[in-house]
Amino acid sequence: MPPGNDNHELFENLRLELRRGSLILAVLVMLRVEHYGYTLRKALADHGMPIDEGTLYPLLRRLETQGLLVSEWREEDKRNKRFYRLSAEGKAILKPLLAEWQGINTSLNGIL
């Protein structure tokens, strides 16, 4: 049932909270292959995880600061683009993160 108007804001907040953790995981998974922001966003949208650039780019920066991603500026189609990919540290962390997510998913399915 769609949330009523009164609960819409609450639902939005809960939805965003739910999505936040999943998005990080999705971005890390997608960046096992090198992408620049625009193609990454399109790839995520194609997999049913749309994300606006105002959320994606700050997230990419944060993940890079945390050492999970590496980036470099390169020219493609006569335009400079910043390409991101998973760092060695990112690869190492992704494995247990995915296992954790699968565990949560299994538990939730059990509860439901």
């Binding site: 620049y36 922001g37 400079n80 910043r82």
Partner: peptide
């Protein structure tokens, strides 16, 4: 840096 990246995306 941010503007270069945002500019590319919006373009």
């Amino acid at each position: 840096d941010i503007i270069k990246e945002l500019s590319d995306d919006l373009r």
